[in-house]
Design a protein around this nucleic acid. Sequence first.
DNA 1: CTGTTAGCGCCTTCAC
DNA 2: GTGAAGGCGCTAACAG
Lengths: 315, 315
Amino acid sequence: MQNRLTIKDIARLSGVGKSTVSRVLNNESGVSERTRERVEAVMRQQGFSPSRSARAMRGQSDKVVAIIVTRLDSLSENLAVQTMLPCLYEQGYDPIMMESQFSPARVEEHLRILRQRNIDGVILFGFTGIDEALLAPWRSMLVLMARDAAGFTSVCYDDEGAIQILMQRLYQQGHRHISYLGVPHSDVTTGMRRHHAYLAFCDAHHLTPHAVLPGLAMKQGYERVADVLHDDTTALVCATDTLAIGASKFLQQHHAKPIQLASVGNTPLLKFLHPEIITVDPGYAEAGRQAALQLIAQINQSSDPQQIVIPSSLI
Amino acid sequence: MQNRLTIKDIARLSGVGKSTVSRVLNNESGVSERTRERVEAVMRQQGFSPSRSARAMRGQSDKVVAIIVTRLDSLSENLAVQTMLPCLYEQGYDPIMMESQFSPARVEEHLRILRQRNIDGVILFGFTGIDEALLAPWRSMLVLMARDAAGFTSVCYDDEGAIQILMQRLYQQGHRHISYLGVPHSDVTTGMRRHHAYLAFCDAHHLTPHAVLPGLAMKQGYERVADVLHDDTTALVCATDTLAIGASKFLQQHHAKPIQLASVGNTPLLKFLHPEIITVDPGYAEAGRQAALQLIAQINQSSDPQQIVIPSSLI
DNA sequence: CTGTTAGCGCCTTCAC
DNA sequence: GTGAAGGCGCTAACAG
């Protein structure tokens, strides 16, 4: 498996000096067309690839980034990561994966490890409780997902827009008693912003809001959805697909009267289990792509930190 | 973010030579207790951590392994990866993630990339269609998951045992008309072995087998389960949790008569959706741990390739 | 026990 | 345009 050949070998084989090979390798100017072609031919034919470690040591980056997801089995994060990976590989970056399991301590621990590795950048899926002070040293090479923080690059979903689209749609369909199943405000984006958007819509359209904010888990949706179902309720908006799955299970078991569900997520699982649910795609795939590209841009110093918002779209 | 200090700095600060620092760093013998402590103190106090790239260049191993999953959102693979990661980190290995999406071409492409990176090892989740010839060069540093191949290290589930446990249990409960929903034989482990175990049990207990083998997807389970449901069917064994979810959906919609479901998987999702299903845990967590440990052992040349089978257990 | 000396593979002056 | 020389941070012989 060893990469036995070095630029020295290539140099010898193509009858030039090491530096010329190096120049060709880095696409530097100042090499005659003929020489360049000859060297490239030898490299190709020998299947040469330069040693990452050696380059890294010489001060370049080792082209490694970390992706810290909350959970490996998060439906939404999976969709974003799925598009990140190809973007990163395309640019020659290797993504190493870590799982925070919603534990700030684990994030801290992971960042500690990463600092030692002198990694190029980090994509971190945010959640409640992360200490921003911890992230400060990474400011220039960190992309925060699904959460924003002043001075940091972030890729967020259009929380308000997503809920608004859903409510609008339900309203158009004639629903006037729409309940809401969400996440506590300690979660600023998925929790507070989406809930506020729901309240705002209700207010603007003179609807009576009925909301409960149990949390992110299916089980929590299942156990608490009953609290917002009244006799006149005809529709229910869920802050996430995961909650919607929980709610659906409850409705199937306990509720004869049909309730129109709507949720933000567009995950394949929900799509399969309950295609009848109205869904908004928060643009997970696009978010993944943007995050990867933005991180690389910042690593290359060709972009400054900025906050990106991905538009939602009705399916 | 840069690790400005080098062993040279540490050497100067603690009044010793570079090599002594290096010795301390690698826990080599032949350093007096006093010196070692002094150097360690300086390192700690300076928050020193050696440059990976430099070590890699000298030593060969950059302590990076790849995990190639079929899909980021595979319920079972997630469970295995979840235990792998901590094992790998503990030993100082960084895991980079890749997704094959069941495409042999992608596996080939990924391995090509990995070869250039002169990576230390690979954990590959197997599936139908992978060309073993491609894996040959990796033999000594590859762990194949959920599939075995002669001469390769593999971590497999006890397919026969899992099905047998399920059948046994159903039989004990009095079921005599047990159908089977599985995966085509082109998939040797999840497909053929589990199916054969089903047939063997039926044969041994004089039951009439009714099986259909649509594939791995929920949708396939949903669409084909009807084909094995007869008037006298009282139980259904599914080769995977994913299929069971598909089947459950169908049963909920179309089947008044209760059917006892059983499946191998023990994934949290199924557990939540249908806790009443009888489940066998193929030991995903244990498989992940074993795979990580075995790979590391092989990298350290302290173990030869071997085939590991994880025992199943009834929940 | 410890310091000195060579490189590992690559990039970067600096001469030619 | 091109090659030779030096050094990145570390480890691995050597000497002392």
